[in-house]
Simulated scan of single mutants.
Amino acid sequence: MHRRSWEELPTALRHAVEAECGPVLRAEGPSAGRNSTFAAFLHTADGTVFVKGVPDYERLVTVHEHEIQINSRLRDAVHEAPRLLWVVRTEGWLLAGYETVPGEHADFTPGSPDVPAVAEALSRLAQQLSPSPAPGVSPLRKRYARLAGWRWLADNHADGLDAWEKQHLDLLIHFDDEVQSILAGDSLVHGDIHQLNLLVHGDQVRLIDWAWSRTGPPWVDAALLIPRLIGEGHQPAEAEHLVSRTWGMQHASATGDAITAFAATIYGQWHRLAVEYPSPHREAAVRGARLWIQHRLSSS
Rank of each mutant, 00 (worst) to 15 (best):
R146D: 08
P55N: 09
D162E: 11
W86A: 09
H190E: 01
H174V: 00
I208K: 00
I230Q: 02
S130A: 08
V118I: 13
A106P: 00
D192K: 02
L42M: 12
R89D: 07
F262W: 06
H190I: 04
H271C: 11
D176R: 00
T255I: 06
A39C: 12
L169N: 10
I230S: 04
V51Y: 01
W212H: 11
H105K: 09
E276W: 08
T246L: 08
T109E: 14
A77V: 13
G33C: 12
E58I: 02
A289F: 03
I293R: 15
P131G: 07
A284P: 00
A184N: 09
G47K: 08
P23R: 14
G33L: 12
V200L: 06
V243W: 03
A264G: 15
A237W: 01
V200W: 02
K166Y: 03
K142H: 15
R4E: 15
S36D: 12
R141A: 13
L172H: 04
E104F: 12
I266C: 09
R73V: 02
R282S: 08
E58A: 14
H174R: 13
L153K: 01
L9E: 10
A126N: 08
F41Q: 04
S5P: 04
R228K: 12
P280W: 09
T260L: 14
N71K: 03
Q180H: 14
I208L: 07
A237V: 10
P135W: 06
E240W: 07
G97W: 03
T215H: 00
G29L: 13
G191V: 01
G185W: 01
V49N: 05
M249Y: 06
Y267F: 14
Y57H: 12
F38V: 10
E120A: 15
M249V: 05
L74N: 02
D76N: 13
W150H: 10
D177H: 13
E120T: 11
A284T: 08
D162L: 09
R245A: 14
V275Y: 11
L161S: 06
H201G: 06
L297T: 02
A285G: 07
A45R: 11
V78L: 05
E240R: 10
L225T: 00
R143E: 07
A284E: 06
H201Y: 10
L129I: 00
H66L: 11
R143D: 07
T48C: 12
E67F: 07
I193C: 01
H43F: 10
F262S: 01
D159Y: 05
W210Y: 10
V275D: 08
A274S: 15
L147V: 09
A96G: 04
L229W: 02
M249L: 15
H251Q: 11
R206Y: 07
L171D: 14
P218I: 01
H271Y: 15
E238A: 14
G29R: 15
A261F: 04
